[in-house]
Structure formats: C-alpha cells, structure tokens
Design a protein around this nucleic acid. Sequence first.
DNA 1: ACAACATACAACCGATCGGTTGTATGTTGG
DNA 2: CCAACATACAACCGATCGGTTGTATGTTGT
Lengths: 108, 108
Amino acid sequence: MDETDEQRADAFFHALSDRTRRDILRRVLAGEHSVSALAAKYDMSFAAVQKHVAVLERAGLLTKRRQGREQLATGDVQAVRSVASMLSELEDIWRGRVDRIDTYLKEN
Amino acid sequence: MDETDEQRADAFFHALSDRTRRDILRRVLAGEHSVSALAAKYDMSFAAVQKHVAVLERAGLLTKRRQGREQLATGDVQAVRSVASMLSELEDIWRGRVDRIDTYLKEN
DNA sequence: ACAACATACAACCGATCGGTTGTATGTTGG
DNA sequence: CCAACATACAACCGATCGGTTGTATGTTGT
C-alpha cells in the first residue's frame, strides 16, 4: 500500500459509498449503457447522473467509449477485483499473515 | 441487496473512504488498541481520532470493550468479509451469474 | 441545413465531512 | 481524596458532496 494505492483506495471507496453509483455500477457491469439510458432509470436530473458516471470513471470503475452521439459506459471488473484485493489485505493483517507488518503499520 | 443492506453498504464504504480510518482499521485488525493509543499515532487531535473510531464502530467494522478507564477497540473481520461479499456480488453480475437479475437491477 | 438529441461543464445551494477547541464525565493511582 | 488520565460530545469552521439549472458543443436523422 504505497501512496498511489492509497489514492486509488480513496477514489474506489468514495465512488462506492453512494447508492446511486453502486446501482449504476451494477448496470454497467451487466452490459454497456449510454449515459442517457442510465439517466432514464433514476429520479434525478441528467446532469446528476452524468456526474455520478464521471466519479465512477475517475475511480477507474467504468470506462466509456463513444459511439456516434452516445457515450457507452462499461463496468471494469478488474477494478472491482482490485478493491476486493485491498480487503483481502485487511483479512491477511487480521490473520497475522502479513509478511512485512511495517509496510502496513509503521510501528510504534 | 435490500434496503438494510444498502444502508450497511453506505456505512461500510463511507467508513473505508478515509485514509486515516483505513489505517486505524489495519491496526485494530492486528490487535486491540485503546483510543488514546491510536490517537498517539496520528498528527491530529485526540477528538478527531475518536470520531474516526466512532465512524468505524457505527459501520460495524470495529467493536469496543471497556477495560478500566480505557476503551479497547478490535477490528471485526466478519464485517470486512461482508464488504468483500458485496464486491463478489458485483463480480457475479459481471459474469452474468446472477440468479435473480431483477433483485439487483429492477429493469428496465 | 437544421431541429432534436447526447453529452459536458460551470455556477450555485444546502448538507455532510474532517478537522478544531472546549467542556463534561468517569476511572484510577498514589 | 484528588490530580491526572481516558473518553465522549457539542459547537464551530472551511471544504467537499450530491443535487439543481443553465449553457455550450458535438452528432444525427430527415
């Protein structure tokens, strides 16, 4: 967990901390959706949904590809897995199965 | 993912979205620490650290037990695992291995 | 060509966040 | 007993968040 990883973790967990964004992520993991198609599903403005998509994109949890006038969003399962691996690291710490404790907790 | 689970997810991911809180969680997963012992590790006020501990506690990521005048905090690895299982669910959606799609995405 | 559509982004607003200081309450060691 | 310690919590502050409306820019179908 270096500085860069901590920044990625900040972005990941922040992006996942909002219900609407988690719901959007589920949809785009199931398949490509345009931003407007996503916006149509929620009781909020297009701009609000567009910003949620942007947050997920900045965190690396989805990518967009342009097709004509639409922007198609797809969930990035590898990013989801790297969040999962951050949690595994926590589990490893709990198990005491940490190779170099000092990198995780600069003691004491 | 019912309403209650969504609330838990909100609390989990919000709690994990802060660096200091993730660091505290690592420490208390490795072993019990009093709130003051934790506070001593960070360049911020005791009150700030106490609030971080409270956020982790409200999310269920740690529990406290009183011993004399100290409050000893321990990380709850089961809570960490239930966050991991929320991510597995996302992976399942990506794989198309979702039993009841409608419960995840009330289409269309 | 051009009207309608899809997207992006800025400005703004109230609410929440992460930090501070100060105060109150309980616990303990000498 | 009481001074020092450990914790909790309220009030406050600037920054960020999640939402809004409005505007600009590109793309498309007819």
